[in-house]
């Protein structure tokens, strides 16, 4: 079985994001695989270990964004495809999905796994767009995946409860938190990953005449919150009383 995992290289979730002149300052950022994508990759590796599969990671990004693919190799991915987008922005989900569509159509892929959303854009659009463009099923927010005999059964977090989805392969599944606990790569994996080749593609060739369908006007700092107030009091009960009074009379939220 061929499994493709869509991974995105994003700033470490611990990173502070600085904005200068309407753009994100890239200096000093440590780059990681987006956390939900890492869960998707872990699931692919577990399927491979259980029933045999080739795991290929695909990442669309700028020319220097290869560290996520190296980390994926260290975790256990077999192949890595890096689609270089000369004018990459995390928000241009349409051209990313179109590039992935071109990559997938040229291969014999049975299962596509991806995180439910990138931790940078929080968009969660690309896997849905890819499945729609390919005309295959999509199962969102997976917390349990069972692959058997050309089909997949997935337990998913849904609004107001949990849904079990059934789909024939090929299908796209997005990983939710709780699906698994991703492994840490070991030293040998990290060393071997450095030597592995990466299959580099050019988005301009995959999607001739591509056009971004979103205009980015400017990035800005998050809105600052008004300065808060520490509630003082002799005892915990005094503080509790003063807080309830402030919520009721000043903030008027209760």
């Amino acid at each position: 079985m061929n499994i493709f995992v869509l991974i995105k290289q994003v700033p470490d979730t611990e990173a502070r994001i600085r904005v200068s002149g309407g753009s994100i300052v890239q200096d000093g950022i440590k780059w990681i695989i987006s956390p939900y994508d890492e869960i998707a990759l872990e699931e692919a590796i577990r399927i491979k270990q259980k029933s045999g599969a080739t795991v290929t990671v695909v990442s669309v990004g700028p020319a220097d964004a290869t560290s996520a693919i190296r980390t994926a190799y260290a975790m256990g991915a077999d192949k890595g495809i890096h689609v270089v987008h000369p004018e990459y922005t995390m928000l241009d989900s349409q051209s990313i999905a179109r590039a992935l569509e071109a990559v997938v159509r040229a291969e014999d892929v049975q299962l596509i796994l991806a995180g439910r959303q990138g931790s940078d854009s929080d968009n969660g659009q690309v896997p849905l767009m890819l499945a729609t463009r390919l005309g295959i099923g999509l199962i969102p927010f997976a917390v349990e995946v069972t692959v058997s005999d050309g089909s997949v059964r997935v337990l998913s977090e849904a609004e107001g409860g949990r849904a079990v989805y059934q789909a024939a392969l090929p299908a796209v599944i997005t990983a939710n938190a709780g699906l698994n606990e991703p492994r840490y790569p070991n030293l040998k994996g990290i060393m071997d990953a450095k030597k592995k080749a990466i299959d580099t593609r050019n988005l301009l060739e995959l999607v001739p005449g591509w056009e971004s369908m979103v205009e980015i006007v400017a990035y800005g700092d998050a809105d600052a919150r008004p300065k808060g107030k520490i509630i003082e009091g002799e005892t915990a009960a005094d503080k509790a009383r003063a807080l309830v009074q402030a919520l009721h009379e000043d903030a008027k939220v209760i």
């Binding site: 700033p11 994001i17 928000l91 931790s119 940078d120 369908m213 979103v214 006007v217 400017a218």
Partner: peptide, 20 residues
């Protein structure tokens, strides 16, 4: 359509405009 939205889970924001 022009929107403002948080990105990086609220650590920054961005203004966007639709095209097409």
């Amino acid at each position: 359509v022009a929107i403002t939205r948080p990105v990086y889970s609220g650590k920054a924001k961005v203004q966007l405009k639709s095209k097409g």
